[in-house]
Design a protein around this nucleic acid. Structure first.
Lengths: 231, 231
DNA sequence: GACCTTTTTCTTGTATGCAAGATTGTATTT
DNA sequence: AAATACAATCTTGCATACAAGAAAAAGGTC
């Protein structure tokens, strides 16, 4: 299941970059997780130089951050940052449906196939595949609308959203998400772009609201809670 | 006139990164321009390592690209890529006005001050300042709407737009642009977000249409034209 | 003089070495 | 025993050296 390829995909450091994004998208890398240069260098069989190149790009994409001489870490957004990210996604995705919401029949079919794959992954209870496909749907949608630029931006924003959902233990149901994806496709097929945009707005607000319900579980608070009752 | 700061602004490579973006935004760096690692290292008084770090991030931001063992170059978008970039901006900026188009009075004042600065630069015929301010308005707008995430995305997209305008010798008038910025602020002040969005759509279409009128002046064709009549 | 070959030069690609600082573990002191 | 000072370790930060390849220059051949 290939990602939208990075520039210079054949370059070794681009491979590292892609692998990390993919792992995050699959929920196999948690927010706050440490990504040591040395460890990654060993894993990928290269020197720290190439790992660093990948990290610099991932930093520019807002997926990792560095703490001076302490290490590289997967972002761990605050509640405010999480909200800003989701607001940005809403603006971007609603805007793209409103301004270029026309897709031809074969593309609709491709999107439907994607949603079917989502539901198959849900059925099989394949968490990684499910997480990846649910996020990647939005990238596919941007591509379907003919915008590789938006697709690239959404790749980063959805990755961050997956991390946010992990951090805030979003209760948003996968099944519901997939159903909402399907409704958006229906609206697009009917040629009703404004309705598709409205559905997307609702869809993303659902994710955002899931943040409201369960409270912040930052790394520290999580530890605090875990140790509160020695029992 | 500070840019929206990069993460770890104090890091030397971030400074290089900012300087290059700023220069591009001012029109002092042309599309297709070569950015040699050695040259930059000398200019900034550091080793190639730090220059490379900056380039990796700029690559991820879609502002430079590398040609294997040939060099780093400022992007030189094709007409299709230019259109995709402007489409993305339209989606993003229309979306942001529609979904979060509320600003308070002091913020309106700050935006008006920005437009005044634009007009002062136009008056003084200060091309660099004018180019920078006209582009940066959109970043400020995103910030005014309370979205640092969108502001960061727009920083990159506007930089690319400036490069596109340079490449295609966009005839879009600076004066007209600034006037359109003012109209958008008016609509926001009146609390009419949909109207602001409509005006933004028109504004960006104007830029895009300027691409239509004058034909592509790619580096090669430009040379061809320049050499056509030996006289 | 034009064309092909070879060599030189110049560019990025990658690994490595060492420096600087943060953290953790240990000993020392009170 | 608790607190503090010290040392060892582990991390990134940055520069440098060399390898690999592309482009340009030089040389040779017809």
């Amino acid at each position: 299941m290939p990602l939208t390829p990075s520039p210079e995909i054949d370059s070794p450091s681009a491979r590292i970059e892609d692998r990390i994004v993919y792992a995050a998208l699959c929920g196999r890398i948690a927010p706050g997780e440490r990504l040591g240069e040395k460890d990654l260098a060993e894993i990928f069989g290269v020197s720290r130089t190439l790992v660093r190149e990948a990290m610099m790009r991932l930093q520019a994409r807002g997926i990792v951050q560095v703490s001076s001489r302490r290490g590289w870490f997967v972002i761990e957004p605050t509640e405010e940052e999480a909200r800003h990210t989701l607001d940005a996604r809403r603006a971007l995705e609603v805007g793209m449906l409103v301004t270029l919401g026309k897709v031809d029949a074969p593309t609709i079919q491709a999107l439907r196939a994607h949603v079917q794959a989502e539901q198959a992954a849900i059925e099989k209870n394949d968490r990684a595949e499910r997480s990846y496909l649910l996020g990647h749907f939005h990238v596919c949608l941007a591509e379907a609308l003919g915008s590789p630029v938006l697709a690239a931006l959404l790749q980063d924003l959805t990755t961050r959203t997956v991390l946010i959902a992990a951090l805030y233990q979003s209760s948003h149901d996968a099944c519901e998400s997939s159903a909402e994806h399907e409704l958006i496709i229906d609206a697009l097929e009917a040629g009703d772009a404004p309705e598709a945009a409205r559905l997307m707005d609702t869809h993303l607000r659902h994710v955002e609201n899931a943040l409201n319900e369960r409270h912040v579980l930052s790394r520290l608070k999580n530890l605090k809670v875990a140790l509160s009752h020695p029992d």
